[in-house]
Design a protein around this nucleic acid. Structure first.
Lengths: 204, 204
DNA sequence: GACAAAAATCGACATAGTGTAGAATTTCAT
DNA sequence: ATGAAATTCTACACTATGTCGATTTTTGTC
């Protein structure tokens, strides 16, 4: 949520640093795309953003902080987008809608999502961000399963545990698919949707 | 396969370096456990193995090469173990057996498997190793699905694609479970087994 | 529009880890 | 015993990180 209050009174906004901060994150995302996280150096980011390393350290304490901020920004998008999707009452429709949305998200933010996943282990902050986001999805999947008649509870054959496994299946399938060219995402989506339907007992 | 030919003729074996090489990998595995891949330095490994950095570079060209060798060694175990498991003719039994074996593998080698997964993106060699191993599992799962009556082929509702998704589900579920204490692995296993059964159309 | 405080930027430094090179030592079959 | 191969070490060069204090720019206020 940028600008909690749009220009109110005498606009108290938009320090020059806000622009820079955004430029840094944008550059970071771009570099992530064509060099990868490892190869990307703090100097590269600073240069791309038009400042020196020294200046960058005024905004972020480390390379990891930059990447973490980028992940946070992206995760923010994911949540807004998810919240904006009305939940259908029919499980079948809900599943289809969810998968379509997932394809869109991975198409738009696949790169950052992938790095978030990769760094979840090494950067605790990112791990938390991603885990929390995953929990949102797991909760949503659980709800759909229960609406489809899967018994609630945390046993191996009950909604919560199954939703978790399905979530990881989707995450990993898209993680791999989004690295391949062509319509891999679509195919992965179709497969996951099919398994989700079967798992929910909605095999037609 | 250590020692293609056990002591034959005048034993041409066991250069001192072979011991060191093993010591290095063992140390690497130990350090991986309590410092993590990032924090672990080449100096640490050398020290743990009782030599200096310089000597270590005689055996391995870089830290990544050490880790890659460790992953290769572990993957070797996985394959041997998998090959040693007779495939049952009854899909239900095959699934149960496969999941039990998977729990064992993750219990023994979870740490290295996790780092292999984490480094798959950044270290191409490790990516190849892991991808190839995954393909073995996917092939096995595909066979079970087909034997259970799932139509062969690569469409979203056919065996190959579904096996792939199930493989990622299992990988990711165990990846997370093996980081938690207690019987998480068992629970993850039960859930995955249940979904696999349903997916194979074997819901009793 | 001048001016002081805050914001932003820079260049230089200290540190840590990597990988390389060549010299020195150990091992081992002859 | 001896010479080649195997092993080890020390010293060096390089790269990237993060910190510091000085300097410049922006910004709000009078």
């Amino acid at each position: 949520m940028p600008a909690q209050h749009p220009p109110r009174g005498r606009r108290a906004g938009e320090r020059k640093g806000d622009l820079r901060e955004r430029a840094i994150l944008d550059t970071c995302e771009a570099l992530l795309a064509d060099k990868g996280h490892e190869a990307m150096t703090v100097g590269d980011i600073a240069q791309g953003a038009g400042i020196t390393r020294g200046a960058l350290y005024f905004y972020f304490g480390s390379k990891q902080e930059v990447v973490t901020a980028l992940v946070a920004r992206t995760v923010q998008h994911l949540r807004e987008r998810s919240r904006a999707t009305a939940a259908s009452d029919d499980p079948r429709q809900a599943i289809t809608a969810a998968m379509r949305r997932t394809v869109e998200l991975w198409n738009e933010h696949g790169l950052v999502m992938r790095t978030a996943i990769d760094l979840s282990l090494t950067v605790p902050e990112i791990g938390d961000l991603w885990r929390h986001t995953a929990d949102l999805f797991i909760t949503a999947i659980t709800a759909v399963l229960e609406k489809a008649g899967v018994p609630p509870g945390t046993g191996p054959d009950q909604a919560a545990a199954m939703a978790r496994a399905l979530c990881w299946m989707i995450e990993r399938s898209f993680y791999h698919a989004s690295q391949e060219p062509g319509d891999s995402l679509q195919r992965a989506s179709a497969t996951c949707e099919h398994i989700w339907l079967i798992t929910a007992g909605l095999t037609p």
